[in-house]
Design a protein around this nucleic acid. Structure first.
Lengths: 335, 335
DNA sequence: GGCGTCTCTGTTAACGCTAACAAAAATGGC
DNA sequence: GCCATTTTTGTTAGCGTTAACAGAGACGCC
């Protein structure tokens, strides 16, 4: 047991140099003779030496680890984002440490952030879609690089976000363009900024068309809540178009409409949000809005890295535009 | 910038003790006077002291971090597992570092494991559902605690796995019990152990009933491939029952059957696997098999922790039984 | 040839913590 | 109250790396 691998001094001894020279080779320091560099490289390979991140972190004060705080990494959006972040981070030589939290209240978030800080992560990405998270973030130490994703647009914190408003507007407009007189909305939980943004966009599109928005029906992202809303919508003969805040809600709505014999898209059109991979195989295939999670991840990481390198905070902001994906769940209303 | 927080010596000075006593309080060492302990705790709180994980990792040789290697953390199964692992690990005071890999070949896996090792993780969990992963694992250093999840049952590596065979047998038996003469199978990729196990279980159930298994139709976990298989199944009048290797495949099948006007469950019954939260809202609600991801996560972590603590390797093995969830997608065949 | 100026390499001292040992204080039995 | 024992605290020495400085060659120029 405890066969600790070789350390830098072992490599140095084998290569016939000092450990500091090995360090220089490892960190790409310019002033090392080519021949020496090769000898060191050979020794590293021969011993299977692997630098000790803990020691490095101790002396530099930061590790090559990025901490991510997220709530429910089972949901499609967060899961995709996390995966994309991890990919991007790996390309930059960073590992990703996840700290998922059950609730997005102060205490949980602060605790998760604390855990990351005690590991001296290089920076933190908080996927903080709800109100209560914002407060926790403002009292964090100012010297730790931080980026929030889908967080509170009104707070002075670096933020990358999907343009919820534009996406929702596009979805709603798509339904209006098909000839619908109005569009109903099944929203996400109203303490999520995503939900608020999508409600806003939907409302904006209706108002711009001179229409009076009907009351949004609140869901909780799940198919179950979509189903419950769908049961109500199905019984309202005036409903011809529904925009749901995500695809799972849409699935629940589709199911309810189907049970009530209301055919989609002939009687009612439905548009979702997220473009989960299955959306194309719903009955009928779901028109939806696709956020570019890779772009969000890239933008967040880039923003974080620039903070890490420069040391400055800068409350930047970046918005990623989503794209409408048209499928068969939308048709003109029957007259 | 770089306002490094207080160190242990700062706490010690404030509390009027030596830094070693602070260390003892932090690590729950028994021989510390209650009064001293309280004084130290107060000093810690007052300074907002946070122990430096890197320093601790350096001196102990292990960090309080568990590395997880997984492929596609966007899929429901892996994502759920990852989330559950993270939760469980957090309860034990461990952080989780994800290293997702694009492909599950040697090189990718080894590289991911290397990255974890250089951060001196306390242990590694590999979610290694495919053949090629196994080889990479056997040549790892033997002294690092390792657990594989859904990996190769034939390798001498600690393994926690969902009982795919039992789950598939239950699903198939459920269809046979409903009166079906045989059951068709849409499988996952055949280099995944999950797929192989599910094929096995399905075949076993048929053989036990004295039936000759029809050829399984190979899918790739996606709704898209389920749809393609479904199009073929829909045109085969003798097909009355289908077991798919996961719920997304089932969704694709349902969609194809719907398009061909074959009603589910009246003409054809369908059973899936995974019990994704949406399965209850498919059209019709999907009968499926629910693996207990929390149990898998708990078992893996427990196995890993016992290795970490004892230092011994022990090729343990643990199997988690899944449960059948009956919904409306199964009915007796029409005669 | 001597001297300043590069380029390359080595030496030493941290970083913040735990482990091992040493010392001091408290406790108990007589 | 004194000695043996136990409990509690302090001292010292690393862990493996980088940073800061110092030294040794190599080179060119006067």
């Amino acid at each position: 047991m405890a066969v600790h691998g070789p350390a830098m001094t072992d490599v140095a001894r084998l290569a016939g140099v000092s450990h500091q020279t090995v360090s220089r080779v490892l960190n790409g320091h310019p002033n090392v003779r080519e021949q020496t560099r090769l000898r060191v490289r050979a020794a590293i390979a021969e011993l299977g030496y692997r630098p000790n991140g803990a020691a490095r972190a101790l002396v530099t004060g930061r590790s090559q680890v990025i901490g991510v705080v997220a709530q429910n990494t089972t949901l499609y959006g967060p899961a995709s984002l996390l995966a994309a972040l991890e990919q991007t981070a790996a390309e930059e030589g960073f590992a990703v440490s996840v700290g998922s939290v059950r609730n997005l209240d102060h205490r949980s978030i602060s605790a998760a952030v604390e855990r990351h800080l005690s590991h001296r992560v290089a920076g933190i990405v908080v996927i903080a879609p709800v109100e209560s998270a914002g407060e926790a973030l403002e009292r964090l130490p100012k010297d730790v690089p931080l980026v929030t994703v889908d967080g509170d647009p009104s707070r002075p914190v670096p933020l990358v976000t999907v343009d919820q408003v534009a996406g929702a507007r596009a979805a709603t407009q798509h339904l209006l363009d098909a000839g619908h007189r109005t569009v109903w909305h099944v929203s996400g939980p109203t303490d999520w900024f995503d939900s608020v943004g999508r409600i806003d966009g939907w409302r904006q599109a209706l108002l711009a068309a001179g229409l009076d928005p009907p009351p949004p029906m609140p869901g909780d992202w799940s198919a179950a809540s979509g189903y419950r809303c769908g049961q109500m919508l199905a019984r309202m003969p005036e409903v011809t178009a529904v925009f749901t805040a995500n695809d799972h809600l849409a699935l629940g709505v589709l199911r309810a409409l189907h049970e009530f014999g209301r055919r989609v898209p002939h009687e009612i059109s439905v548009v979702g949000f997220d473009d989960v991979p299955e959306a194309a195989y719903f009955i009928p295939p779901l028109t939806t809005v696709r956020p570019d999670f890779d772009a969000v991840a890239r933008a967040s990481l880039q923003m974080l890295l620039s903070q890490i390198e420069s040391g400055t905070g800068g409350a930047l902001r970046q918005t990623i535009a989503p794209a409408l994906v048209a499928r068969e769940s939308v048709a003109p209303p029957r007259h």
